[in-house]
């Protein structure tokens, strides 16, 4: 190869490299653009919610993001309204109890389905999974009939019972328990622990990320649940927060600024839960082999 050939080859390589670099930057730009658009689409409603909560009623239908005359009167009104605190408490109790029950029952069932062999195990698992295919709207009528028959209408139990255990949670936990080596359980068995102790002392701490992820899913789901609490409750005292907020819409008008204020306050517990457990949620979803 002559010196001229070598020079030619080098310049060709350089131009190829810069073309590849250009292509990479373009792809990067498109990726960022898509993410930015997605981010804006997700954040805008929240910003609007906050913005509206700071507006006077006359300004609600203006689409400006920054209120002309910002006010905290809406917050004062909502917080001073005794009903709001009651709805908040109802939601908190229901979401917390349901979350604890899910963490307990879903992990127990998931553990048994994963770590024990018994006749019909596969059928039970499929049966549980198949309930994921039934939309909530279809289940509402039987749930209502059940609640009515057992006298659970307008009670905490009536609101909570359909969600105390979920097929999704069971599946999530079962998937996670697959990652716990059987050696751990057998070692504990030899060390003299009974099966319940093994589950609680050995298996549960090893699936903490999944428990956290499950807790977040269940808490958020129950905190924002609307249809079932609306159907099963009659008195305003038993309303949950999302149901209670609808009382701000009356026949004549919808008080958007109050609804948005209530919604803004109601996001606080979910934000706290998410901030505490956020590092687990991604790991939990990834390890369960699900697309978040």
């Amino acid at each position: 190869m002559t010196a001229a050939d070598s020079l030619d080859h080098n310049s060709q390589m350089t131009s190829l490299r810069s073309a590849a670099k250009r292509k990479r930057s373009q792809a990067q730009f498109i990726r960022w653009l898509l993410l930015f658009t997605g981010g804006i689409a997700m954040v805008m409603p929240i910003i609007y919610m906050l913005s509206t909560s700071l507006k006077y009623p006359f300004e609600v239908y203006n689409l400006n993001l920054i209120p002309e005359e910002p006010t905290l009167d809406n917050y004062r009104y909502v917080l001073e309204d005794g009903r709001f605190f009651g709805w908040f408490t109802n939601s908190l109790v229901i979401a917390t109890v349901t979350t604890l029950c899910n963490v307990l029952f879903d992990s127990l069932v998931g553990y048994v389905l994963c770590k024990y062999t018994f006749p019909g195990r596969y059928i039970v698992f499929i049966a549980i999974l198949s309930t994921l295919m039934i939309p909530t709207e279809m289940l509402v009528i039987p749930w209502y009939l059940m609640s009515s028959a057992f006298g659970w209408l307008d009670t905490y139990w009536g609101i909570m019972f359909p969600g105390l255990m979920t097929a999704f949670g069971t599946f999530l936990m079962k998937q996670f328990f697959e990652t716990v080596p059987d050696d751990f359980l057998e070692a504990a068995r030899i060390d003299g622990l009974n099966e319940l102790q093994i589950w609680w002392t050995v298996a549960m701490p090893l699936v903490r990320p999944a428990l956290a992820a499950l807790a977040i899913f269940v808490f958020l789901g129950n905190w924002t649940a609307f249809i079932w609490p609306l159907i099963v409750t009659n008195s305003q005292e038993m309303y949950t927060l999302p149901v209670g907020l609808t009382t701000f819409s009356v026949e004549a008008q919808v008080e958007w600024e109050l609804i948005m204020t209530g919604a803004a306050i109601s996001t606080i517990p979910t934000l706290i839960v998410f901030l505490i457990f956020q590092r687990y949620i991604i790991r939990g979803v990834v390890m369960a082999g699900l697309k978040g």
Partner: peptide
């Protein structure tokens, strides 16, 4: 297993 008065060391150690 707990009543056999044995202890076992596993291939993967099985330490928690």
């Amino acid at each position: 297993p707990k009543d056999r008065d044995i202890a076992m060391v596993f291939q993967n150690y099985a330490i928690y």
